[in-house]
Computed example of a mutant assay.
Amino acid sequence: MKKFIVPALFAFLFVAASCMNMNGGSEKGGSIRVALPGGRYVYSKENADKFVVRVIGETETIEKEAMLGGVIEFTELEAGEYTVEAEARDSKNNDELIASGSKDIKVVAGETTECPFTLIISNCFVAEDGSLVINRKKCEKTGLVTVTDSVVMANLDGGAVDDGTEKEISPYAIGKYEVTRELFEAVMGIDPSSTERVTEEETYELHPAGSICWYAAIVFCNKLSILMGLEPCYSIDGIDDWQEFDYESIPGSKTDNNVASWQSVSCDFSKNGYRLPTAAEWEFAARGGDMSAEDWNYRFSGSNKADDVAWYSGTSNYNLHEVGLLNPNRLGIYDMTGNSTEYVWSDSDYSNGDRRLYYVFSLISQTSQSMLQNEYGYTYRDPSNLAYQRGFRIARTIK
Results as ranks from 00 to 15, higher is better:
residue 385 N to F: 08
residue 394 I to K: 09
residue 278 T to N: 13
residue 373 Q to H: 01
residue 328 P to C: 06
residue 274 Y to C: 00
residue 316 S to G: 10
residue 288 G to P: 05
residue 299 R to M: 12
residue 379 T to K: 12
residue 289 G to T: 00
residue 330 R to Y: 03
residue 331 L to E: 06
residue 288 G to N: 02
residue 298 Y to D: 05
residue 316 S to Q: 10
residue 397 T to Y: 00
residue 304 N to D: 15
residue 363 L to Y: 12
residue 391 G to M: 01
residue 299 R to Y: 12
residue 277 P to S: 07
residue 327 N to H: 14
residue 374 N to K: 15
residue 358 Y to A: 10
residue 374 N to G: 14
residue 285 A to M: 03
residue 366 Q to T: 15
residue 326 L to H: 11
residue 361 F to G: 06
residue 281 E to V: 03
residue 337 T to S: 15
residue 378 Y to K: 10
residue 391 G to L: 08
residue 346 S to K: 12
residue 359 Y to R: 04
residue 290 D to T: 03
residue 392 F to W: 06
residue 367 T to Y: 09
residue 284 F to A: 04
residue 279 A to K: 03
residue 342 E to S: 15
residue 349 D to P: 03
residue 309 V to L: 13
residue 331 L to T: 05
residue 275 R to V: 00
residue 355 R to H: 14
residue 303 S to G: 03
residue 302 G to T: 01
residue 274 Y to F: 10
residue 391 G to F: 08
residue 325 L to F: 05
residue 361 F to E: 06
residue 306 A to K: 12
residue 391 G to D: 06
residue 307 D to W: 13
residue 383 P to W: 01
residue 311 W to F: 11
residue 398 I to N: 01
residue 394 I to G: 03
residue 383 P to T: 00
residue 329 N to Y: 07
residue 362 S to Q: 04
residue 274 Y to P: 00
residue 338 G to Q: 04
residue 283 E to N: 07
residue 284 F to V: 02
residue 339 N to M: 02
residue 300 F to Q: 06
residue 310 A to S: 15
residue 325 L to N: 09
residue 363 L to T: 10
residue 316 S to N: 13
residue 311 W to Y: 09
residue 321 H to A: 11
residue 295 D to A: 08
residue 315 T to V: 04
residue 347 D to Y: 05
residue 274 Y to H: 02
residue 390 R to K: 15
residue 344 V to Y: 04
residue 283 E to V: 13
residue 362 S to M: 04
residue 340 S to E: 07
residue 364 I to F: 11
residue 314 G to V: 06
residue 373 Q to K: 05
residue 299 R to G: 13
residue 275 R to Y: 01
residue 343 Y to P: 03
residue 360 V to M: 12
residue 371 M to E: 03
residue 381 R to T: 15
residue 276 L to M: 15
residue 327 N to I: 10
residue 278 T to P: 07
residue 317 N to M: 11
residue 368 S to L: 11
residue 382 D to F: 00
residue 388 Y to C: 14
residue 355 R to K: 14
residue 341 T to V: 15
residue 313 S to R: 08
residue 283 E to F: 05
residue 312 Y to L: 02
residue 395 A to G: 04
residue 306 A to I: 12
residue 285 A to W: 01
residue 317 N to D: 15
residue 377 G to L: 04
residue 281 E to G: 01
residue 316 S to C: 09
residue 343 Y to F: 15
residue 379 T to D: 11
residue 384 S to G: 08
residue 377 G to T: 04
residue 333 I to Q: 00
residue 371 M to Q: 08
residue 354 D to P: 13
residue 334 Y to I: 07
residue 321 H to I: 08
residue 287 R to C: 09
residue 321 H to P: 10
residue 322 E to T: 00
residue 382 D to K: 01
